[in-house]
Structures are given as C-alpha cells and as structure tokens.
Nucleic acid binder design. Structure first.
Length: 299
DNA sequence: ATTCTTGTTGCATC
DNA sequence: AGATGCAACAAGAA
C-alpha cells in the first residue's frame, strides 16, 4: 500500500511518542520483517531509550532514539504504523486513527510494539514484505545519507533526470518511474498519476522522451509529491475527483479529464497493473514531443 | 476456488 | 559491466 504520501502519514503516527522513553518492547522474532537480523537484540537495544525524532526518505523511515540507536523500517506492501493511547479516559484505549485512515491489523501481525508510559507504538505488516533494521552509531547511518536525492529536494534536477532517463532508455517509462534510485517514493499509483497528467504512454521507451517531455515529467512528479503529501500525508485525505487516483481501481471507469471521458484501460506494464487513458496518452511523447534528442543520448 | 494486490530482490538472460 | 524482465516472497480481499 504505502508510497511516498502514505509513508509520510505512517511516519507521523508515532509522533505522540516523541520525547518519551521506551519502557519495554515486544517482537515476533520469527517474523520475516526481521530477516537477517536479531529481533530480540533490537528489543533489548531499544528498551530504556528515548524516542527523539523521525524521518522519511522515499519509502524509507528512520527513527532516532537516545544513545545513538537508529531504527529504520520499510513498510513493504502492507506495513502500517500507529499508536495506541491507553491514558485516555478510565480504562478505555484511544486508537489514534482518523476517520478514513487504515484500521488496525490483527495482533498476530504486530511484529514490533514499543511500549511507553500510557502508550504503544505499533509496527504491523500482514504480508511481511516490509523490513526492520537497527543501527547503533552516533550520527545518521551511512546508508541513509547516501540515498539518492528525493524528488522534492534541490538535487533532483531536470539535468540529472535527463541523464538517468537516457541510461534507462530501453525501459518503458513506467518502469523508470518505479525505480527507487530515480524516483524515490513513487509507487504504482503515483507513477500512473504522473503519466496520466503528462499524457504519456506508460509503454513508451524512456529514450523517446524529448527535453520538453522530460521537463513536463519532472514538473508533474514534483507537483504530485507536494499535493499528495499535503492531502494524504497529513490526514489520509481523499484526493480530488479530478485525479486518476479515484478511478484507477474501479472497473469500467472513464478518463476524469473533462474534455476526454474515454474508457480507461488496465494492463500489466513493467510487471505492474497499469491504468491509463488510451485516448489522452496514446502515442504520446513520440507524437506530442520532438523526437529523440540525439545530443542527450550519445554526445 | 481462483485471481488479484499501492514493493523489492535475486537470478537468468540478454 | 550494465540493462532488462520475471518469479518469488505471504496473506487477505474480491
């Protein structure tokens, strides 16, 4: 489920625990989310630490604890974070869920639970494609600081994007959008949303995008990240009806573009179910944009 | 019962 | 060496 905006939403779910100490930790040591690491050691290291800050980078999350302890997690396909406040009212627990946000999973999926005074911070993941890792170091872990530039960062330039698109020139543009080293945080629905907005055929080889199309893709990606973070990343809000988002998973939907309204298509492209408008996005890039920029491909 | 899934990785094959 | 495509991972929903 989680892409950039959903990951940001889940990051914030542990905010109520900021500044407070971890009194004890529950883990499922055999859960696949701990593959290759010692879950019981993670539990021991976190116990007694104070939860200091949280960070997101693409689909990666990083939580800082006192004493140079860093917990990172990836939510995979079905990972979720939430907090449960047991101080609210007499005996009654307050699930800190907003209306419309994801509900809790069954307790058997609660693979990591950080107990604080009057509160629990829960990591849950039924499919267990997610991953949890702990590092002990004074500063931000090396692997974290060497992640590729985020889409909304100044380092995510048109020039850099053009170079990466050229290198992946043989891949369908949809596949490139899903590459986390190029578009950190973009997942299946965000990729389709960007391609729909730029009227780009998802199957189009990346090298077929000219300079104008690359500029449009760059702008659309940044715009979508900003809007999705604002709408979904804060409240799990529902995007406007004008987005492809609200139509892509329903059968027999029509293109939400007012002047179009043609039936949407769904097919597997680059290994993932892709939704697009064959009318708006047909033969785009090749037709709308100048042909291949040879200077860019082979100087 | 069968088929689907908003993600990543390892491996085979160019 | 580097790029590309696909099966596998696991569980629940439709």
């Amino acid at each position: 489920m989680p892409e950039l905006a959903e990951v940001e939403f889940f990051r914030r779910q542990w905010d109520p625990g900021l500044g407070s100490r971890i009194t004890s930790v529950d883990v499922h040591p055999e859960a696949r989310v701990f593959r290759g690491v010692d879950a019981n050691k993670i539990a021991r290291r976190l116990s007694g630490r104070r939860f200091l800050s949280s960070h997101a980078h693409g689909k990666n999350l990083l939580f800082r604890f006192s004493g140079g302890v860093w917990l990172s997690c990836h939510l995979g396909m079905t990972g979720r974070l939430w907090s449960i406040d047991s101080r609210a009212g007499a005996g009654s627990e307050a699930r800190l869920h907003r209306p419309g946000s994801p509900a809790e999973d069954a307790p058997r999926h609660h693979h990591l639970v950080l107990h604080q005074r009057g509160r629990r911070l829960v990591f849950s993941d039924p499919r267990m494609f997610g991953r949890i890792v702990l590092r002990e170091c004074p500063d931000v872990p090396e692997w974290w600081s060497s992640l590729p530039p985020e889409i909304l960062s100044p380092a995510f330039t048109r020039t850099r994007l053009a170079g990466l698109l050229a290198r992946r020139g043989g891949s369908p543009i949809k596949a490139v959008l899903l590459d986390q080293d190029i578009f950190p945080g973009i997942g299946n629905w965000m990729a389709d949303e960007i391609l729909w907005r730029t009227r780009t055929d998802p199957s189009l080889p990346a090298a077929r995008l000219g300079p104008d199309a690359i500029g449009g893709l760059w702008r659309a990606a940044r715009r979508l990240c900003r809007d999705a973070l604002r709408i979904i990343g804060t409240d799990w809000g529902r995007p406007p009806e004008s987005w492809l988002f609200n139509h892509r998973w329903i059968d027999n939907q029509r293109c939400p573009r007012p002047e179009c309204g043609a039936p949407l298509s769904r097919e597997v492209i680059a290994g993932r179910t892709t939704c697009w408008c064959p009318t708006c996005q047909e033969g785009s890039g090749g037709r709308r944009e100048p042909p291949v920029d040879d200077a860019l491909r082979r100087p």
